[in-house]
């Protein structure tokens, strides 16, 4: 169903530019990876804290508030640098099971991190009981690890 849409994306002049130029794609990939590092840090410090590990000296709401701008802006950079990489090899992505694995995990990850975890981290420790914060922390780590694995496998196995 989406195949014509991916074909259209792949035929855009913008996509052809990235596919046929030498330096733009490696530069985008490097920026994308730097944003992965910042995003991973922003996700992890809060998720570990939800699990009762890491920066336990700080309260959960304070830590989540401090990490939020890094989380949001690194995610914006990830999307902006990810789109040209995706469109320039659109049909390869479309036919890759790992692309769809990544997108599904990404969608759920965004909902968990930016919506559910945001609610959990807005209240002091204990407000949601001992279990839910840990469930959210583990789920968030698992989802973003899954996104990273899926992303890496697109390049290696597709």
């Amino acid at each position: 169903m989406l195949q014509p849409f991916f074909q259209w994306m792949g035929e855009l002049g913008f996509s052809a530019y990235f596919l046929n130029s030498v330096w733009p794609t490696p530069i985008l990939q490097c920026i994308h990876l730097l944003a992965v590092a910042v995003f991973a840090g922003a996700v992890l410090v809060v998720d570990l804290r939800l699990l009762g590990r890491g920066l336990t000296w700080a309260s959960i709401p304070d830590l989540a508030r401090a990490a939020q701008p890094w989380l949001v802006w690194s995610f914006v950079v990830l999307v902006l640098t990810g789109i040209p990489q995706m469109t320039s090899t659109a049909l390869k992505q479309y036919y890759s099971p790992f692309f769809w694995w990544k997108m599904e995990a990404l969608f759920v990850g965004v909902v968990v991190t930016f919506v559910i975890r945001r609610i959990i981290t807005s209240k002091e420790e204990g407000h949601f009981g001992p279990v839910w914060p840990k469930v959210v922390g583990v789920t968030s780590i698992a989802l973003w690890t899954s996104v990273t694995i899926g992303a890496r496998l697109i390049g290696l196995l597709s």
């Binding site: 590092a37 995003f39 840090g41 992890l44 410090v45 690890t145 990273t148 890496r152």
Partner: peptide
Amino acid sequence: GYVYLLTAHVVSMGLVAGVIAY
């Protein structure tokens, strides 16, 4: 083998770089 190694290398890079960045 290389696929598993590189994938684990990239995932652990996120942990190392993310923590060291903070």
